[in-house]
Design a protein around this nucleic acid. Structure first.
Length: 512
RNA sequence: GCCAGGGUAGCUCAGUGGUAGAGCAGAGGACUCAUAAGCCUUUGGCCGCGGGUUCGAUCCCCGCCCCUGGCACCA
């Protein structure tokens, strides 16, 4: 059983992981962790897409069998997951038997039903590249680029899927389910696309041209082409797990919404008599506007370098804080460092440090119980009530960047509260009223930090676990209860001060 | 060309039919528990351009300009 089955797109193994891959995993993971904390039973799938022309060609060029090549690259993608603290439950490869079996079943079912038929594919073919070309492959003047060599128009038999006969159904489905695609404007794009008549979809390639694929069960001289292979992973991974399908959410990039995920996939499922996913979440891309400031060496850098340097939590925070889901975002080392320094090191990390330090110095290392609350305490508490309520609601609507903005405004308010009470002054006073206020202020700052940490857990699972640990907090019970202001830490033994997010050393040895 | 998104302070962005906001960067100040961090104050904007509706528009309508992406049998 699963209340919330969530997937990333599977990654094509013809290239190595880059920022976009890392972002999609992190975004999906944040949603998965959030849903788990909200009490859902979550099943989280990711994986790799491994068949096809390009893999076959690249493998051949390297002189290795496609299977071996796919193994190597798939392993790279897989290795990235733990480094980003991704909490996936499963990892599917389209070369696995469990996948191929389901693909064959799906194809056979549709073939028997008459939704797949044999026809003829016509197009421009490049013998040198061994592939059909598209109109967009042409030069602006209509000629074909030299890399294709001689281009001829040929026809070959192939199998087709009756997309067209389901177009009307899909249009109606989308009209009835306005929130199927998030953000809304993406669904409008789908609707626009469907205003023109669909052509049936060519779903096969003759084996003489493409061997690296899944043979059609009803005609082994063909393999199935990308659509029925790659898209089916979402279903094949859980076909043997009762109660998991349909997916609650497919997280994908905007490049593969129309037509694959918004047109082909729903029609494939509907034709096969399977339930549709409940929604698609379409994210944008990270752009490197720094094309102009590309003098500095590292404009094309691996996101995992930032993980090595600053930790997975920091990169995850940047991804989620900086990107408005659905829009594009700017990615550069400079932007990352601004977020890291100001939000993580200065605001949050330093707060952790000073809370621990003051608790040790002024309360013997145990969080005191709060006494009577004054105006400053009530204000901070009221801010938390509003912040936590909005934060949870915003996360539910995929407005993570706004949620984090609000949460860090709260973190800054904790810092302001500390300044207002100035425990270091109270600690020098012998006045009983000051002593009481000292206890209260230490309790309140620790509690506020505990709450901020709990809220941040889906985004920064590592760092927040550390914060919980050093505060002597043991998360238990429902997350929403944890997010309620209370006195949970009274009596907790805190650890000695630590530096959670060290400020990077100033760049040494700059080029003259 | 068609469709969509965006064009708001130096940078990244939020925002509402009624004298424009946050963070970062810049300037000044008080403090010291802390990662020279945090806190307080502050400089700074014909809200892309031109029309229109309105008592009044950054926000509504029309046109235009610029940036980004998609336009299918492509992973």
């Amino acid at each position: 059983m699963a209340d919330f089955y969530i997937t990333t797109a599977i990654d094509y193994v013809n290239g190595l992981p880059h920022v976009g891959h890392a972002y999609e995993k992190v975004l999906t993971d944040v949603i998965a962790r959030f849903r788990r904390l909200m009490g859902d039973s979550v099943y989280f799938l990711t994986g790799t897409d491994e068949h096809g022309q390009k893999v076959q060609q690249t493998a051949r060029a390297r002189g290795v069998p496609p299977r071996q090549f796919a193994d190597e690259v798939s392993a790279e993608f897989r290795a990235m997951l733990p480094r980003l603290l991704i909490s996936n439950d499963d990892f599917i490869r389209t070369t696995e038997e469990r996948h191929k079996r389901v693909v064959r079943e799906l194809l056979q079912r549709l073939f028997d039903k008459g939704d797949i038929y044999r026809g003829e594919y016509r197009g421009f073919y490049s013998t040198r590249q061994e592939q059909f070309l598209l109109e967009k492959d042409r030069n602006p003047d209509g000629s074909w680029p030299d890399i294709y060599g001689e281009v001829t128009q040929i026809a070959e038999p192939n199998y087709f899927f009756r997309l067209r006969s389901y177009q009307e159904w899909l249009v109606e489905f989308l009209a009835r389910n306005e929130g199927f695609v998030f953000p809304r404007f993406r669904q409008k794009q789908v609707t626009e696309f469907l205003k023109d008549p669909l052509n049936d979809l060519c779903i096969s390639r003759p084996r003489e041209r493409l061997e690296w694929g899944i043979p059609l069960p009803f005609d082994p001289s063909f393999v199935t082409y990308v659509w029925f292979d790659a898209l089916a992973n979402y279903y094949s991974a859980v076909a043997d797990r009762p109660g998991v399908w349909p997916a609650a959410l497919h997280v994908i990039g905007k490049d593969i919404l129309v037509p694959p995920h918004a047109v082909y996939w729903p029609i494939m499922l509907h034709a096969a008599g399977l339930a549709l996913p409940r929604g698609l979440l379409v994210h944008g891309w990270w752009l490197t506007s720094g094309a102009k400031m590309s003098k500095s060496a590292g404009n094309a850098f691996n996101p995992l370098e930032l993980v090595d340097e600053f930790g997975a939590d920091a990169l995850r925070y940047f991804f989620i804080r900086e990107m408005n889901v659905g829009q594009d975002g700017d990615f550069s080392r400079e932007l990352f460092l601004v977020r890291y320094n100001s939000d993580l090191a200065n605001d949050l990390g330093n707060l952790v440090n000073r809370v621990l330090n003051m608790t040790s110095r002024f309360a013997g290392g145990a969080v005191p119980a709060a006494g009577a609350e004054g105006e400053a305490e009530l204000e901070l508490r009221a801010l938390w009530e509003a912040t936590s309520r909005d934060y949870v609601a915003l996360f539910g609507q995929y407005q993570f960047h706004t949620g984090l903005e609000r949460l860090f405004a709260f973190v800054r308010s904790i810092n302001a509260y500390v300044e207002k009470r100035a425990p270091w002054k109270l600690g020098k006073s012998a006045d009983p009223a000051d002593r009481a206020l000292l206890q209260t202020s230490l309790a309140v700052m620790a509690e506020a930090l505990r709450l901020a940490s709990a809220a941040l857990r889906p985004v920064m699972p590592g760092a927040t676990a550390t914060i919980d640990g050093v505060l002597g907090s043991r998360p238990s019970g429902a997350w929403l209860d944890e997010l309620a202001w209370g006195g949970r830490l009274a009596g907790a033994k805190v650890s000695p001060a630590l530096v959670l997010f060290p400020r990077p050393l100033p760049a040494a040895g700059k080029a003259p």
